[in-house]
Design a protein around this nucleic acid. Structure first.
Length: 490
RNA sequence: CGGGGUGUAGCGCAGUCCGGUUAGCGUAUCUGCUUUGGGAGCAGAGGGUCGCAGGUUCGAAUCCUGCCACCCCGACCA
């Protein structure tokens, strides 16, 4: 890496603070571990939301909303779930404040203690399954395919902007099915939706696979995930889809009358992606000049910068620019005409690059004279002069080219940083450089833990497409029949 | 929760060890003129509970005590 935003930083938090703050995406908030998502950052999230929501609906899901507060007793009904989440929950214990007797501000009113504490949801399985009990009685009520867009709170000991904030925005799908097979099919379907979204929209290549028992969601029988590789060589879990079996149905007593007239517990799945995807997007593509956004998720596709000396010249340029803007908009593009007279063109160029706007058009008096425009692309930082008449075609073509190019770049990067090794010594060396490692593992939690302790590497997943291959565990030498994906992760 | 660090103008920092002019620099902001095809220049102006509370002192950003907040490293983490 050369000089610039990505290389100046000594660690990723610093990298992040520098880029995220400068590109106007988010700030740390006054509240521990939380963030303020700024308008430009939120606009990117809205684009993600819109596309994901469309994909959920295309796969038969509908949206609903469930409470933020979960009675503590709900939580303890599923044993492994409470074990997985209890340590990191925010708890509401009182419902009133009062003026402090000493006149110094406000204190919690001890008389207003809740009989049962409320947990601020870290995930909604429990409150949703408590509701599903009333909604599901017959096989005719199934499948129930619901998604919720919400905020959740997890009081993590250590937070990182976008990657692990105390409060974050996400969607969580919660489905109920009559059969095990159907629930597993749903789990697979949704991990595929996530993978498609990551690759086709975010332009981030991902590896689909199953989590090991150690890394599985608390309360799930199986967890599928997509894993992406960031530019610093660390892995990021970008989305998960869980097969919950009948665990929650049993915990919340959700039974249904089958077609055959028997009574059975329903089969469940849950799946989610969060604002962490913003982190993935930033870390996967950004360069030393700032953010690089895939056109399909960029809030602004094209910025037009007029170059002029006097206000009269801006008026003349506008005559050329406004019709061009309009024509681009009819092609479905979002176009910003940056006619601010408070900053110079050079400043605008740098600013739009920092924000990752895919294409920039500059028009000055020289262009008006020649009937041309200058078109610059963010991904390659190259610029060329075209006849005005070709501008719309060039820009629409560039949208596809840039989308493909940044995917290819990320994909090439991943290929170059994915290793296979059968030597534990080499395994450790590779980890220090960063990247994915495909290696054999004996399948035991003990080995997985020991590797984690010794190297900080975790098994990201057992890739679905891992071919059968006889080998020996990298640590113990015991037999293994396929390679699994190791990496240091966020 | 353990280890380390930092709190001084919107932002970034110096000053603190060794107390002493009116608390300073960069940047941003405002005004004016000149500039405008890659982050403008000059001149002037405004902006401060020095994290909070107490103490020592003729005098505290600076020393002492207590507290708070944030950041980094670790433990932890669908």
């Amino acid at each position: 890496m050369s000089k610039g935003i990505t290389s100046r930083a000594e660690n990723y938090s610093q990298w992040y603070n520098e880029l995220v703050v400068k590109a106007d995406l988010a700030d740390s908030s006054a509240v521990r571990g939380c963030m303020v998502i700024k308008p430009y950052g939120y606009a990117i999230w809205e684009k993600m939301q819109a596309q994901l929501d469309k994909m959920f609906k295309e796969t038969g899901h509908v949206n609903a909303y469930f409470p933020l507060f979960i009675p503590k007793s709900f939580f303890s009904r599923e044993a492994s779930h409470v074990e997985g989440f209890a340590k990191e929950c925010a708890v509401v214990t009182h419902y009133r404040l009062k003026n402090s007797p000493d006149g110094k501000g406000i204190v919690v009113d001890d008389d207003a203690k809740l009989e049962e504490e409320l947990i601020v949801r870290p995930t909604s399985e429990t409150i949703i399954w408590n509701t599903y009990k009333d909604w599901i009685h017959s096989y005719r009520d199934l499948p129930l395919l619901i998604n919720q867009w919400a905020n959740v709170v997890r009081w993590e000991m250590r937070t990182r902007l976008f990657l692990r904030t105390a409060e974050f925005l996400w969607q969580e799908g919660h489905t109920a099915h009559a059969t095990k097979e159907e629930a597993i099919a749903e789990t697979t379907k949704m991990i595929n939706v996530y993978a498609d979204f990551a690759e086709k929209y975010m332009a981030v290549p991902v590896i689909k696979g199953a989590k090991t028992a150690n890394e599985r969601f608390a309360g799930a029988l199986d967890t599928y995930c997509i894993e992406a590789l960031m530019q610093d060589g660390k892995a990021l879990q970008a989305g998960t889809s869980h097969f919950l079996g009948q665990n929650f149905a049993k915990a919340f007593d959700v039974k249904f009358a089958t077609r055959e007239g028997t009574l059975d517990y329903v089969w469940a799945t849950s799946w989610g992606v969060s604002t962490r995807l913003m982190g993935a997007l930033i870390m996967a593509h950004s360069d030393d000049n700032g953010l690089v956004l895939p056109p399909k998720l960029a809030p602004i596709h094209v910025v037009i910068v007029p170059i002029y000396l006097k206000p009269e010249q801006l008026a003349l340029l506008s005559v050329k620019i406004l019709p061009l803007k309009q024509e681009l908009e009819t092609k479905g593009l979002t176009v910003k005409f940056d006619d601010r007279d408070t900053v110079k063109p050079g400043f605008k160029f740098a600013e739009h690059e920092l924000k990752g706007i895919p294409v920039r058009i500059a028009i000055g008096p020289r262009d008006v004279e020649n009937g041309t425009v200058e078109i610059a692309r963010r991904d390659t930082l190259t610029k060329e002069v075209y006849p005005m008449s070709e501008a719309v075609d060039v820009v629409t073509r560039l949208m596809n080219e840039i989308q493909e190019n940044i995917y290819r770049k990320a994909s090439d990067f991943r290929t170059a940083n994915t290793y296979r090794t059968d030597s534990y010594a080499e395994f450790k060396e590779i980890l220090d450089k960063g990247g994915f490692i495909l290696a054999h593992w004996d399948g035991t939690a003990e080995t997985e833990d020991r590797i984690k302790d010794e190297t900080k590497a975790t098994i990201r997943c057992i890739p679905f497409d891992a071919p059968e291959e006889a080998g020996k565990c990298i640590l113990t030498g015991k037999p293994s029949n396929r390679r699994v994906l190791f990496a240091r992760a966020y």
